[in-house]
Design a protein around this nucleic acid. Sequence first.
RNA 1: GGAGAAAUGGCAGAGUGGUCGAAUGCGGCAGUCUUGAAAACUGUUGAGGGUCACACCUCCGGGGGUUCGAAUCCCUCUUUCUCCGCCA
Length: 423
Amino acid sequence: MLQVPFIRENKALVIERLAKRNIDANQMITDVIVFDEERRQIQTELDNTLAESNSLSKEIGNLYKSGEAQKANLLKEKTTQLKQVSKELTEALNNKSEALKELLYKIPNIPNEVVPRGNSELDNEEIFKEGDIPVLHEGALPHWELAKKYDIIDFELGNKIAGAGFPVYKGKGARLQRALIAYFLDKNTGAGYTEYQLPHMVNEASGIGTGQLPDKEGQMYHITEDNLYLIPTAEVPGTNIFRDVVLNESELPVGITGYTPCFRREAGSYGAHVRGLNRLHQFDKVEIIRVEHPSKSYEALDGMVSHVKDILKELKLPYRILRLCGGDTSFASALTYDFEVFSTAQDRWLEISSISNFETFQANRLKLRFKNSEGKNELAHTLNGSSLALPRVLAGILENYQTENGIEIPKVLQPYTGFNIID
RNA sequence: GGAGAAAUGGCAGAGUGGUCGAAUGCGGCAGUCUUGAAAACUGUUGAGGGUCACACCUCCGGGGGUUCGAAUCCCUCUUUCUCCGCCA
């Protein structure tokens, strides 16, 4: 959620930046400013009414004490009137605040200066590329066929037990998953992140805190009986650790990491692009989350990017980094870098990590602040990124490491898997 | 799931209708003393909004109500604790 004072003081800039997302925000931003103006005016009126009412009540108390009940009763009539006025004002204030809030919930974060204007993935900028694309042997297979051939992932079985998009990992496939999780977590804790195990369901307040609710309700599985949501990413429980928290400046930066399964409804997805592990309802992911001082958050973003680069380099997977255009940058993000690994057998790039700086957008909703050097509470910056999303890394490994004799295991993973080939 | 108790400032813990944003203790901060530290003593110390600064408003788990006036009374929700049941 954008901050109203910022909008008020930077109206033109906000509109201009939102245009990078191809949004004409003129009307919305004008409304925000007007609503806020009205809201504050009502607030002032209400405050004054309450102040008068309070002082009269005190007076009444004193009059009763000194036995002047008659005078007191006279004043009572006045306070009764004031009460009616303040009731109406309170209602007006609530309506106005609610309208303002609803409006603010609809406005996405303003993209950073460097974000290119654009609509779709076609407008994303490739900013880095590394790793050689292997030349595969004759008859190389896409990962879903490899999965079948070596009996390591069973899509039909998952379909039977739960439905499409819930694969079952078996044998060396399951072990490879576990190895990846352990390896990622070790890399992250090695880089200073604290490991967490988080709830896989969250309440409504958490969904609102990180921006999934109220707008993107349909993307999460909702357990209506208990009004809980299955997490679409560890970002939700992880970032909500800091909801309603005031940190000391000296506690910054905070870095946490956690492995969780992620659940996504992916309503409306279908076709060849969702084959195999490409798009699932349940998948595993290791996430990194940072809380940063506003002056350090972009440095931190760069740090996260090189951290993930390092992992992909160790895995020896060909990958590239994209700077997302405005239209492709997620609702809450100001700047997002996507990592994509090349799926050789499918001949396409697969997104495996998305690293974003949300600046104060989430912090404003979360009320995540720190005491700055002046002793004032200031909104912190939040960032997060995947390190990494498992299925597509797995797809990348299966496809890029396949040989005629089987699928080789990247060197760094062998201590975790306990085997060096899937055959 | 059943029965009971509770929820107050960073923590502990008073407060059962008006002068309570809240005693007291601990902790924190500043100072005195000290070569320095500790101890002792003195002062200070919740949050949000609002203002140039004051004033002023809001907040005693959340929401609603009674009353001129609520931390205090009523309703409701949530959470925690104890006992019983169940259970990985």
